[in-house]
Amino acid sequence: MAKSNRINKWLISGPPLLYLIIFFAIPSLIMAFAAFRFPGDYGGLLPLIGPNPDTGANELLVTAENWRDYLTFENFGLFFTDSIYVELFAKSFWYAGITTLICLAMAYPLAWLIARSPKKYRDLMILLVILPFWSNFLIRVYAWMIILGPQGYFSMAINQVLGLIGIGPVQLMFSHVAVIIVLVYVHLPFMVLPLYANLEKHDMALLDAAQDLGASGWQRFWKITWPLSLPGVWAGAALVFIPALGMFAVPDLVGGTDGIMIGNLIKQQFLDSRDWPFGSVLSIMLTLAVLLLAGFAALIGRGGKRNAL
């Protein structure tokens, strides 16, 4: 029994595990290693294996004497010496953070409303929340380019209103405002779904009890609903913050030079500057930052789990 259970366990978890090892773990290690190498003459990496000038046979070029010509910490040094990179990291965190907060503020009431709706309407409402996924991501972002563009009705309406109070006209397109608007739009469903899954399970008797014991509407929310929904809040925040932090397509399309994020810089290093080692450094720093945050969130989450009934 125990043995067949173990075999079953491997049969079930084996394929995804193998997939992740081949397509995630190994490439990540390759990338981590690349961060310590030099760029090649025409992009890529300086080869470690090449033809021996004497014999012409392919062999390992690195030796105990010349390894400094092939391996280096310089790429990391560059990241910390030029403040522009750290600043861009900070800016990306700021964008992702703002996006997460706006998503939370918009998704919470929506998720609450859906969770409190009659059961027969809930599935339909959830379907409406995920409906945007039925069309292509890039098409939806291109749609925003039209909406936010100078000839878009949304832009024109905003400028009309601003004109009345003597401000503007402003350009929405190619700005950090456009990046945040579209980041919020793209990630909103990822906040709604975990919040809904959490709020839907809340025992309404707890709110009755709180009211019976003297709690006003706001007190019932802040003392009961909000703390009990924190696991959903953390899950939603992680699902929004982490992808938003590494996003490059949105700032690429609607951000212009003003709205660039860390993802764009990484893409630039690999494709435009052809500096793979430095692109790898940026990627590693991003991964480390996310891991740090995820670890922090897990620590808080574990504190919350203990109290779950």
């Binding site: 008797a205 707890l206 009755d208 014991l213 703390p227 109290n307 779950a308």
Partner: peptide, 12 residues
């Protein structure tokens, strides 16, 4: 004040 049927204690 009420003692509810399933107690309705605050789990957190």
């Amino acid at each position: 004040h009420t003692v509810f049927q399933n107690y309705a204690l605050f789990p957190h």
